[in-house]
Nucleic acid binder design. Structure first.
Lengths: 215, 215
DNA sequence: CGATCGCTTGACCACGATCAACTCCCGTGG
DNA sequence: CCACGGGAGTTGATCGTGGTCAAGCGATCG
């Protein structure tokens, strides 16, 4: 969710959004392809009775706005102020280079979706919240994670969530109350420290990683 | 899950598998890109304690075997006898035409994953099973579904699951017992008729669609 | 200083998980 | 042909996690 220096830039025209702006709604006609350049954005879908599922929380470099038909199949909303690069669809069809970058992005997002399916289908509330926090720790929790950096003396980390409890709940398939309770419990157990509602300090990253269900 | 006449063929070399064959395991080195030509295949991931999540049930034409790194991030196993088309990775990188087909497939699979996230995160057990059955009804349940075909006198349909209760449970994020109970309940309510364990008859498709949570 | 919104906490409930027994189906061999 | 065995599926009883409903807390802003 934090900015990375280098990503596969699509080089479209840039546009800025404020926090909690909607870029497109589910059902809007498809016009463009978007790439997140700066900030963070979520994609979500709604059931007719109002239940919401956040299906992706986008990283810098991620693609969105793709659809099979002529309408978007979900809503795209910024979590923070964000900068987005827009490319016309017909441009993408023509450029082989863009296609190749696109493929790379899609594969990476696909893997994230697979991992998230495991979270939603098979993890407990505590494991979900712990996994969510671990997503936000750079270079950790992934397949290449072999514990703390031996060069670093400590193993702590500060996280900025950029999401309300409701957004986190809708991302993790939980209720706002459960998210709150789990966070309180992790705090009580000394695994995390809550500086502000959306600022979390991890004393030892490994402690948190231990309860993601991955180990 | 049933074969479609036309799909974006990648034209690689074909290979046949028996039912319940593993095409690759999680962690195997990535060598090829696969496309499902005939039959059905599931992709799943395991947690170290044995919990399993089926992350995709592939349709004919779907792509699999993509990875960010050098290892597969999940296991691919056939559900039925299947025919698969294999393409070398470097071939894909070169061919612009293949890239374009690939993109199309990935978008379609991505949408299915989004829909599945809604199911896993926000639907009840009954809604999950009903949604799963509706996936298997051709041309129904999707965004273009406007009820039964007015040309057809009836609105019934026969489904072949090709999956055990355990596989269905692992796909829907439930236990085998819950899947069994929901199916028994739908049977009692007259929504479905169970001819054999994996053959389901729907008297009126709309009745089932009504309980997917989508309406 | 009150109002509002986001968050937390408590009490209770229900859905689905767990554990265990039982049935059904199908294939094999006597 | 039927008896047997094994695996898949069903059903029942009970438990526990997370949802629901409701009240309280704490920042931020007018």
């Amino acid at each position: 969710m934090t900015g990375h220096a280098g990503f596969e830039d699509f080089g479209g025209s840039r546009r800025s959004y404020g926090a909690h702006d909607v870029i497109y709604y589910e059902g809007d006609p498809v016009k463009k392809l978007y790439q997140l350049v700066e900030g963070s954005i979520m994609l979500f879908k709604l059931l007719p009775d109002g239940r919401r599922q956040v299906v992706e929380v986008l990283q810098v470099g991620d693609i969105f706005g793709l659809a099979e038909g002529t309408e978007y199949e979900g809503t795209a909303e910024t979590l923070t102020k964000a900068v987005v690069s827009e490319v016309e669809l017909h441009q993408v069809e023509r450029s082989a280079q863009l296609q190749q970058k696109l493929t790379k992005c899609l594969i990476s997002q696909m893997n994230a979706l697979h991992e998230h399916a495991v979270l939603l289908g098979r993890k407990s509330a505590t494991e979900r919240v712990a996994s969510f926090f671990m997503y936000l720790v750079p270079n950790r929790g992934g397949p290449g994670c072999i514990g703390p950096d031996p060069a670093a003396a400590d193993d702590c980390c500060d996280l900025e969530l950029h999401m309300t409890r409701q957004e986190i709940a809708d991302y993790l398939g939980l209720t706002i109350e459960t998210v709150s309770r789990v966070i309180s419990d992790l705090k009580k157990r000394g695994v995390i420290r809550v500086e502000k509602a959306d600022k979390i300090h991890l004393g030892r990253v490994c402690d948190l990683c231990q309860i993601t269900g991955i180990h």
